[in-house]
Simulated scan of single mutants.
Amino acid sequence: MSTGGAGTERMPMVVLETERLVLRAFTEADVDGVLEAASAPSTQEWVPMPAPGVPYTRDEAEKWCTVTAPALRASGDGQQWAACDAATGRFVGAIGLLRTLWKARTTEVGYWFSPWARGRGMATEAVLAVSRWAIADQGFERVELKAATGNRASRRVAEKTGFTFEGIERNAMPLHGGRTDLAVYSLIPSDLV
């Protein structure tokens, strides 16, 4: 892990590779894929981007790829990766670490994937790579994963990647259609043994 100016800690810029995915920094070339995935009704149901009640537009996709995702790393908040198919280079989804607390050595993994890529284990593959990188390579003591209680697909990803269910945060997240409870999961170093 590196330290930026004025004492701001930052995660290093890295490319992570799995069996089927390349996780790399977002670029302008990802705008169309981000727009398609992020604006899909099935994504918007559980991830109210850019904000509850606000539609996801091409301008938002451009901003995500060129400003927001890079700024999250620069601020020390975390790291964002574009998940791309290793064979074709096609944008598959987004995964990142966020809400990083450097003194506590904790961070949270979040993700959203293109509807066409769901149900193929790609989110599981990406979450496994990023969370293990955070703990094994970056020395984090805790990685959290939070999912809306009704989002069974995301909850299955947490379970398949070895996260432990800890409980429910009630009324914790705004969605486009109201608020939802969040299921809270964690992964700690001893879980990797």
Rank of each mutant, 00 (worst) to 15 (best):
T3G: 05
T3D: 13
T3N: 12
G4H: 05
R10I: 15
R10Q: 15
M13Q: 11
V15C: 05
E17N: 12
R20E: 02
L21W: 02
V22G: 03
A25W: 00
A25T: 05
V34H: 09
S39F: 10
Q44D: 02
E45Q: 13
W46G: 08
A51E: 02
G53E: 03
G53P: 09
V54F: 03
E60I: 06
W64Y: 11
C65S: 12
C65W: 00
T66R: 14
V67A: 05
T68W: 13
A71N: 12
A71E: 14
L72I: 10
S75V: 02
S75T: 14
G78V: 00
A83I: 09
D85A: 13
D85V: 05
T88Y: 09
F91T: 08
I95R: 00
W102L: 12
R105L: 10
T106F: 03
T107V: 00
E108I: 05
Y111A: 02
W116S: 14
R120A: 08
G121Q: 02
A126W: 06
L128N: 14
A129V: 02
A129N: 04
V130L: 11
V130R: 02
S131T: 13
W133Q: 02
W133C: 01
D137S: 12
F140K: 08
V143I: 15
N151D: 14
R152G: 10
A153E: 06
S154R: 11
R155N: 11
R155F: 08
R156V: 07
K160L: 08
K160E: 11
F165L: 11
F165Y: 15
I168N: 07
A172P: 04
P174T: 06
G178Y: 01
V184R: 11
S186C: 07
P189W: 00
D191H: 15
